[in-house]
Simulated scan of single mutants.
Amino acid sequence: MKVLFKLGKQNDIFQSAYANFTKRCLRPEQEILSAKNDYIEIRDLFVHGGKVEDFCNRTVKLSDELKINGNSRLSDLLINELSKLCINFNMQAKAEELLHIALENSRKKNDGLHELARLTDLEYLYKNLNDRKNLFNILQQKKECCKKVIAEYEQNVKNYDSILKKPTPKEGVQTQLAFTYSDLAHMLERRKPKDAVNLYTKCRNIYESLGRERETAYLNERIRRLSERYEKLSLKP
């Protein structure tokens, strides 16, 4: 009976703490920085209490309620933070689900820089899972997103919905595009060497435009070797 009483009392503590957190989040005047600090505090309480899954379920419901009440900024912040927590605790399926929700939220806001960030999160997730099919798909989406952000960079800065972080500089987005071209090329080297050469060339051109001599020289050599291999394959009867 004493054990049951202690468990019940412990559950009451978590229930009460999350109820207070919910009330603070639902205040009309709630500031995003204050909410972020409150989130970290309540997250740590549940994590140390071994209630990560319970915390995730509660926070998804709270995010939905915030969105209904018109506070999409805080709703999106909770989803983004929750996806990181799920990744840290190897809750990969839940992390994937939340990241796709966050990605769609960014697209609805025409927030290309946050869209790019969520695509990068999914990229790392699929790399860790060795999920080549989904990784290739996400890299293709990331390539197009980078190109769009670079072409309309000033507008994307205006659409950047965050007061916690500064927007990624344009050169940083160009570098991400170069990485993406390189990753796609690497995945295509064996099956489609000609396509891989074209992608490595685009990657090389970006580094060249940024004055990155070391990367440019490395890619020139890689392109040369892959082109030679492609030519040999083409000559085979």
Rank of each mutant, 00 (worst) to 15 (best):
N71M: 04
V173A: 00
D121S: 11
S162A: 09
I79S: 04
D161V: 15
D131W: 09
E104C: 05
R132H: 12
G70P: 13
L139Y: 03
C86P: 01
Y124I: 15
E97Y: 07
Q92C: 07
R58L: 15
K158Y: 03
D76L: 00
F136D: 09
R73Y: 01
L77G: 05
A102T: 00
L129P: 12
K108Y: 01
K127G: 11
L119D: 08
L78G: 06
T168A: 04
A117W: 11
D76M: 00
N105M: 02
Y124N: 13
D64L: 13
Q140V: 11
V157N: 07
L74M: 02
D161N: 12
E96Y: 06
Q155E: 10
L98P: 12
L139T: 08
A151Q: 14
I101A: 10
Q92S: 13
A151N: 05
E97H: 02
L119M: 03
L119E: 04
K133N: 04
K127Y: 05
D76N: 14
R132V: 10
C56M: 06
N69M: 14
A102M: 03
D131H: 05
L62W: 04
S63L: 15
V60S: 06
G172V: 01
N88R: 11
K61D: 15
L74I: 11
L116N: 07
S83A: 14
D111N: 04
D131E: 14
L74F: 04
C56S: 07
V149Y: 04
K108E: 08
G172M: 07
P167G: 10
Q141F: 13
N159T: 03
Q92D: 09
